[in-house]
Each structure stands twice: as C-alpha cells, then as structure tokens.
C-alpha cells in the first residue's frame, strides 16, 4: 500500500502550518490594533484567497512563482533552483492559499482579549513587542492552536493550488488529494478508498480538538 502521498500531505501541512502561524500571529495583531487609512483594503487583500477558487489562485501563483514571475525569479537568483513543480513550491503556494484561514481565527482570538490587559502591560513598562509576546500570545494560545489545526487540515486537503503549482510528481508534489484524484481517473478504487478513509479519523480527531480548544 502506497502511503507516500499521505506522508507528503502531512509533511506539507506541518511545514506550512508552522510558517503560517509565525506569519499570521503578528499580521493578525497588526490588523487588530487601531484604525489606519486603507486598513479595510489591506484586510480584504489578505482575505482574497477565501473568496477565489483554488484553481484561480493556483493559476496566478503559477505565474508569480514561475521563472518569469517576481517571486520565482528572486528564488532562482537566491537559491539557484526553480520553485515550480517542487515541494518547496507547493509549501510557498500553500502559505499564500491558507494565510487568511490562519489570520482570521487568530485575529478573533486577539479581539476577545480585554484591552485593559494591553494598557496594564504598557503602564508596567512593557514595550508593544514585549506586550505581544508576554501578554497577548499567552492569553490567545487556545485560539492560535485552533487556527493551527484548521490550517493544517485545510492544507492537508488542498488540491487545485497544489496541482497548478506542483503538478503530480511522485515523492515530490503528489500529495494525497492528487493521488486520490489520479487513482479514480485510472479506476484504482481500492487505492482511492484507502487514502480517502485515512482523512476521516484525522479530520474528525482534529475537529474535536478544535471544539475543545475553543469551548468557553
């Protein structure tokens, strides 16, 4: 039984989740604090992947991450290799694709924090950055963990974006969702069933955990 696609999916989801939480937490804090001109436009831009079909996002990323795209060109200059049709490429694509799914729950969690805690930290001499790490983050851990689980599951199931950017290279970019699609296409239903069934306990278990973490 070939479980390599499942392993690739889990690896992709784990790496993307760690990077996404690291990016999304400060971004969510920036969006939570204060009102500045153009904030709603910036927020809508970050949320765009929620509103667009994954294949459309994948199509744009194909060009941006490609050898003639800005990110792809910069990557090649820095690291000497391409981003498209590589595992690193699908990690980068997943980060773009899943960013709002990480930012939104963390932002909601920050918004639930009593604003007086921030003021309390300030009058006790903490800088805004120290307040973020010593007060805001420790009081948002359940929200951040819930966001991490949701993003992990979202990336585990990614199909359109990964197919567009990574294609289907065995052991490199053929993640479980693509392997299932290809198994069905080639009428290998047993293989499709095995991989599909693996998603049920993973998804169900993680969602139970999210419920537990977000319960008041």
């Amino acid at each position: 039984m070939d479980l390599l696609p499942l392993y690739l999916s889990a690896k992709l989801a784990a790496i993307a989740t760690v990077i996404l939480i690291g990016l999304a937490a400060p971004l969510a804090w920036w969006l939570t604090n204060g009102a500045w001109p153009g904030k709603s436009f910036v927020e809508a831009l970050f949320n765009l992947p929620i509103a667009l079909p994954p294949t459309v996002i994948g199509f744009y990323l194909l060009f941006v991450l490609g050898p003639r795209g800005s990110v792809g060109r910069a990557w090649e200059t820095l690291f000497g290799g391409p981003l498209l049709f590589t595992f690193t490429g699908i990690v980068v694509a997943s980060i773009f694709y899943s960013l709002p799914f990480a930012v939104q729950p963390i932002k909601a969690s920050f918004e639930r924090i009593d604003p007086r805690l921030k003021e309390s930290a300030y009058v006790l001499g903490l800088s805004p950055a120290a307040t973020f790490f010593r007060v805001i983050i420790p009081n948002s851990l359940s929200g951040i963990a819930a966001a991490a689980i949701l993003v992990f599951l979202h990336t585990m199931g990614a199909f359109g974006v990964v197919l567009m950017v990574g294609g289907s290279i065995a052991g490199e970019t053929r993640v479980a969702s693509i392997a299932i699609y290809e198994a069905v296409e080639s009428m290998q239903y047993e293989k499709a069933w095995t991989l599909s069934l693996a998603f049920i306990p993973i998804g169900y278990g993680f969602l139970l955990l999210v419920n537990r973490l977000t319960r008041k």
Binding site: D114, R116, L117, E119, S120, A121, Y122, V123, L124, G125, L126, S127, V135, P138, N139
Partner: peptide, 30 residues
C-alpha cells in the same frame, strides 16, 4: 512620553491582572 517611560504604578477600576499568571507572577511582573 509613552506610559512605559513614566515609571508608573497604576491600579485600574476593575481587575486587570494577567489571567495566565499566578498572583505571584502578576505581583512580580514588573
């Protein structure tokens, strides 16, 4: 000057202790 540079002690109208810390952790915070 921002509040951080005024070296204040401030007790708020209602409780603004840090929920993730013990009472000792709160008292010793700064």
């Amino acid at each position: 000057l921002p509040p951080q540079k005024r070296k204040l002690g401030y007790v708020f109208q209602d409780y603004s202790l840090f929920p993730h810390l013990t009472l000792y952790g709160n008292a010793a915070f700064a």
